[in-house]
């Protein structure tokens, strides 16, 4: 009888330990920014910044001062308005594609004005910015924009923003900016 009880307690302990080990979140899941979902067209508000998507379009090629940049996919350009809240800050953006893959703003857009990657948000001042992504066209519909502080500090605010409901128009001849 005593042995049975001991075995039952031991089994329970092993099961409890196994359950804890299996459900224990890894560091990648435990230390995440706090993501708020923002519906299409709405203004998103995080602790250090607020942002809104004003529009989007596609460009088959980017014309830069250093020459034209083409792509195997397309360039998705989002026009944003963003502002700081309490402190000057920089922002970074990722496009979470329809397949769940994560596309960072492309470094190939270097030289375009008003790039989100290099701009500083000042408290209380709206800045108009563009975020440019290079991606396959089928990642666009069903995807969303993730705006966050650079290097994704844990427990900091981030915004997962739905894009406009109308599909992006293709801008064939890039307008001079």
């Amino acid at each position: 009888m005593n042995l049975v009880r001991t075995m039952a307690i031991l089994l329970f302990a092993v099961a409890a330990l196994g359950a804890m080990m299996l459900t224990n979140p890894g560091r990648d899941r435990a230390f995440q920014p706090m993501v708020a979902r923002i519906a299409a067209g709405d203004q998103g508000q995080a602790r250090l910044f607020s942002a809104r998507i004003d529009g989007w379009h596609l460009e088959p090629a980017l014309s830069l001062p250093s020459g034209e940049r083409t792509s195997e996919g397309v360039f998705l350009v989002l026009d944003l308005t963003a502002a700081g809240t309490t402190e000057s800050t920089t922002l970074a953006a990722d496009w979470i594609g329809a397949s769940g893959r994560r596309y960072a703003t492309t470094a190939r857009a270097e030289g375009l004005p008003r790039r989100l990657d290099t701009a500083w948000m000042q408290p209380g001042l709206d800045s108009e910015l563009t975020a440019t992504f290079e991606l396959p066209e089928d990642e666009i519909m069903g995807g969303a924009l993730l705006l966050h502080l650079p290097r994704m500090p844990a427990l900091e605010g981030a915004l997962l923003m739905a894009p406009p409901q109308t599909p992006p128009a293709i801008r064939l001849a890039p307008v001079s900016r």
Partner: peptide, 13 residues
Amino acid sequence: DGRGRRFLPLSDE
């Protein structure tokens, strides 16, 4: 400023 907001010097373009 008086409302607790902090502005860093501009270090960009």
